[in-house]
Amino acid sequence: MTTEPAALIETRRLSFRPSRSGAMTVSDVSFKLYPGVTALIGPNGAGKTTLLRLLAQLYLPTRGQVTNPKGRLRAAYVPQFPGVYSGLTPRQFLWRTALWENMSWTDAQARVSLALAHMRLESVADQKGKNLNDTERRRLALAAVFVQTASSVLIDEPTASLDPTQRVEFWQDLYTWSQNPASPTAYLITTHHLSEVDGYCQRVILLDRGRVRFDGAVADLKECARGRTFWSDRPIPDRPDVSLFELSWSDGDGYRVLSERPHPLPSWQHRLPTLWDGYLFELRGRSR
């Protein structure tokens, strides 16, 4: 039995209302961000971006608080569409970021050249920012995060609009960086791709309409749907005792069933729950 690792960000009953008369877009959110890669997922409009900005202290919470139990809260935030200074080269921009951090000249030099190498920006290091393409801009924003001395990193939809190879490259970059002892240890990343959560993340937070529906290990989110996932070899008739969250035809294997109740019809075979099943069950099953 190992002891629970120390959290790097802790929120207590965090709530945010953008206007005095409007509704809470984040309400009563309490969770801890642990070392490793945590995915923040949820439907469109769940409040994921707002939550990231609250954690980055760009928004002031209406209620509740964000703290780092181990000391000062230093979370670096990478927005979905990072801007660049059009007149600065990546090298100049990273130098500027490093010198704001109160580090020595030699430290800054080492960190900037390491960041440029790791983010594969050396070939464009001395070009003006306005000439960078979208993926280079994103890599530069990520490089800036690693030049700073933040303890945790918040990244908003880093892989949206990337092609499959570029997407893997992002996760490679993150993985390589996180192995470096000087790097931040906790990463919170929003995504709409459950396959990325399954493939690269250790923990997952599911947000729906401003509230946390699930917070835990990725494998445990799958487990939420255990006992309710089946194969059926035929379509399922409307029956009062059968209520389904999902029924979809899967070529060759029959129909995938996610049942509201854990009682199978006689013709159903059990099937292992996937992350999709867990996601759907937590959203549909618990909100009733």
């Binding site: 490679q172 996180s178 192995q179 470096n180 399954d198 493939g199 690269y200 250790q202």
Partner: peptide, 21 residues
């Protein structure tokens, strides 16, 4: 198993447990 970073391969993918690729 992951024994050096970055790994000496043309193409690789991280795995969720962070000890292997």
């Amino acid at each position: 198993a992951l024994d050096s970073t970055p790994p000496p391969f043309d193409f690789w993918q991280p795995l969720p447990n962070h000890t292997a690729i």
